[in-house]
């Protein structure tokens, strides 16, 4: 995916979010650091351009909610989460760059629940590469990218030096 394809995909996701959420002002786009946060802000900018509504964005850190602390050689760096409160009666849309096993999304749902009880939680991903290990499915997808587990999906977005892009690396 090149920068233009990413732009179109995020614009389409913005349209789908508008279509699927009649009460748009109740929607919160919660990005998973670091690329999910950037993607959430871009979707919010598209929604603003299309509907002239400023929807709220937030940050949902999953590091402290992971189920594999102590089993990985590297300890995930924790960051502060930031969500508009209270969450009650809002729709929180989790935004991530690549959807893979679903474990990050599960951790994100746990994190959101510790802030309150939103009316519903939805999921948006720029890329869905398959290989789910949990019963989780996205509501909004930029691109379905069938991969093998041996491959890596790289996403670059919001870099000051290089253009946005998504590509697959063999390891």
């Amino acid at each position: 995916m090149d920068a233009e394809a990413i732009r179109r995909a995020l614009q389409r996701i913005a349209h789908e979010i508008i279509e699927g959420n009649p009460q748009l002002s109740k929607v919160v786009l919660a990005g998973i650091p670091s690329r999910g946060v950037e993607i959430a802000q871009r979707i919010a900018a598209f929604i603003h351009r299309i509907e002239n509504i400023d929807i709220e964005t937030g940050v949902i850190d999953v590091a402290m909610h992971r189920d594999d602390v102590g089993t990985r050689p590297e300890l995930p760096v924790v960051r502060a989460s930031k969500l508009p409160l209270p969450l009650e009666e809002r729709t929180v849309i989790i935004v991530d760059d690549v959807l893979y096993t679903g474990r990050t999304v599960r951790a994100a749902m746990d994190a959101i629940n510790s802030f309150g009880r939103p009316a519903r939680i939805q999921l948006a991903a720029l890329v869905d590469r398959g290989h789910r290990e949990l019963p989780i499915r996205p509501d909004y997808v930029g691109k379905n990218l069938p991969t093998s587990a041996a491959e890596k999906v790289r996403v670059r977005i919001g870099s000051a030096k290089e253009p946005d892009g998504v590509w697959v690396e063999r390891t």
Binding site: M64, H65, R66, D67, V69, R79, A80, S81, S114
Partner: peptide
């Protein structure tokens, strides 16, 4: 910097995270 992230946990409705579960 890590403490910044954990300070935020104290502002949540549920002030508990599973990071050291089982330890």
């Amino acid at each position: 910097e890590t403490a910044d992230a954990f300070k935020e946990v104290g502002t949540r409705e549920i002030k508990k995270v599973p990071a050291l579960r089982g330890k």
